[in-house]
């Protein structure tokens, strides 16, 4: 017999459901999504680092954030007291938690010339959805902290 879907199969299901909800309601799907998007994603691009040692502000050089195109971001790094931090090493990682893949390119941060300012070169997002951008900041005085930004394209 040819399998026609029941009308129920047509009824729209929200695409963006939380990790927890799909795990409970649809056990078959629990393992499928590496981790679905949390409900209240913090989309701020100007935030203190995990242990509050620094404050980091990032912004895409092109608006809206381009898809499948290598582009640059700016980064401003300040200490907790607001003074700019120059000469830091900033490691960049990230990816799509829901799909279990990393960034398609290997971006690098370089000093931009002005105090606390850096440029991130080689950024690329290959599809729409929830991306994380993870920065690992090592200041010249040896202090070290991390931060994860969320982006929804």
């Amino acid at each position: 017999m040819i399998g026609f879907p029941t009308p129920a199969a047509y009824r729209s299901r929200p695409l963006r459901r939380s990790c927890l909800v799909s795990a409970i309601l649809i056990p078959a799907l629990a393992g499928a999504a590496a981790c679905a998007r949390p409900a209240n994603l913090d989309l701020s691009l100007d935030r203190p680092t995990d242990h509050l040692l620094f404050r980091v502000q990032v912004a895409s050089g092109s608006q809206p954030i381009p898809l499948s195109k290598v582009h640059q971001w700016s980064l401003h790094l300040a200490a907790a007291d607001g003074r700019p931090v120059t000469g830091a090493a900033v490691g960049i990682d990230g990816g799509m938690p829901e799909h279990g893949h990393g960034l398609p390119t290997a971006p690098r941060a370089e000093p931009a010339g002005t105090p606390g300012d850096y440029v991130i070169k080689g950024m690329k997002f290959s599809m729409t959805g929830w991306w994380v951008l993870k920065l690992d900041v090592a200041a010249p005085d040896g202090r070290h902290d991390k931060i994860t930004f969320n982006l929804v394209l």
Binding site: S68, E98, M127
Partner: peptide, 17 residues
């Protein structure tokens, strides 16, 4: 449910990754 579009995305049905 098939999650195909997480890799086969965009007009080419490929994220080119």
């Amino acid at each position: 449910k098939g999650r195909c579009v997480s890799c086969h995305s965009g007009p080419m049905l490929s994220n080119q990754g």
